[in-house]
Simulated scan of single mutants.
Amino acid sequence: MPPRHRLSPADRRAQLLAVGSRMFAARPYEDVLMDDIAQQGGVSRALLYRHFPSKHALFAAVYQQAADRLLAKTKLDPADSLVGQLVQGMDIHLDYFVANRHAVLAANRVLAGDPVIQTIMTDELDALRARLLAVLPLADESARPTVSAVLKSWLVFVQILVVDWLTEQTCSRTELRDICVGAVLGALRPLLPAHLVPNWP
């Protein structure tokens, strides 16, 4: 067990989140034990459970932190090209999904019916949809509800496709990204000015 150091409650929680994040990334959800997290964190079981009353609570906190960081990294700017922003956003998310395969599969399969985890994912998708909608130059403002619905459906499509890819990997990562980008460009083409939606790839 690593030596214990006295930390503030906030710093200790952050440290345990970091340990949990590494372990949920390295192992399937069912193989992660709170005893191991306490040992790796250099704390007692009692202290770990004081911060996180269950493995589920720890995983939810880890996944919420990851969602917040992904949103912070996903920069959308109306001055940039639509394709460039979509490619960048997909690459940022794929980097996380590949590095944290076990955590992503746990959230989308093992805990697929869990309301806390589903709320985290739904909130992130809603935030991404709102950001995309805010930077898209609509040819007609009346198209906004339709574009919003297209983006919502596309984000769910990407989520399902990426989770399947993490288990099967029937194509390369670049092909996966290009499929996802091409899907939304094709769906948006009738709704946006033609010069903003190029053929892809």
Rank of each mutant, 00 (worst) to 15 (best):
K55R: 15
A60F: 03
D35G: 08
M90K: 08
A57K: 10
F52W: 08
H51G: 12
P53F: 08
A79M: 03
L47G: 12
G89W: 06
V62R: 13
D68G: 05
Q40E: 15
H56P: 00
Q65I: 02
V87G: 04
R69W: 04
P78Y: 01
T74G: 00
R50P: 15
A61K: 02
D91T: 09
K55W: 05
R50F: 14
V87N: 14
A38S: 06
S81I: 00
I92V: 13
I92T: 12
T74F: 01
D91M: 10
D77Q: 01
L47P: 07
D36E: 15
L47N: 13
V62S: 07
D35S: 09
D68E: 14
D36L: 13
M34L: 15
I37F: 12
H51N: 12
T74V: 02
S54H: 11
V83W: 04
D77C: 00
D35P: 04
G89L: 02
D77L: 00
D91E: 13
G89Q: 02
L58M: 09
G42Y: 04
V43T: 13
H51I: 09
M34I: 13
A72T: 09
Q39L: 10
H56V: 05
Q88A: 11
V83L: 05
Y49S: 09
V62C: 11
A57C: 11
Q88R: 06
G41T: 02
S44E: 12
A60R: 09
A66C: 06
Q85I: 04
L47I: 13
A57L: 10
S81G: 08
V62P: 02
K75E: 13
R45S: 08
F52D: 06
V83D: 04
K55F: 10
A38H: 04
L82N: 07
D36R: 14
L76S: 02
Q64D: 14
L33M: 15
K75A: 12
K75H: 12
A72K: 11
K73H: 07
D91F: 00
M90C: 10
G42P: 01
R45A: 05
L70N: 02
Q65N: 07
R69N: 05
H51F: 11
R50S: 13
R50A: 14
L86I: 08
Q65A: 10
Y63H: 14
D91Y: 01
A79T: 05
V87P: 03
R45I: 03
M90E: 14
G41C: 01
D36F: 07
L76G: 00
D68W: 01
Q39C: 07
K73S: 04
L33G: 11
S44M: 03
L58R: 05
L33C: 10
L71F: 00
Q88V: 08
R69A: 09
Q64V: 07
P53A: 08
V43W: 04
G84V: 06
L70M: 06
V83N: 07
I92Y: 04
L86T: 09
Q64N: 14
K73T: 00
L47D: 14
A60V: 12
Y63R: 08
D68S: 03
V87R: 15
D80E: 11
A46H: 15
A66T: 09
F52Y: 09
V83G: 05
L70W: 02
L82G: 06
Q39N: 10
L86C: 11
I92N: 07
L82A: 02
Q40I: 08
M90S: 12
Q39T: 11
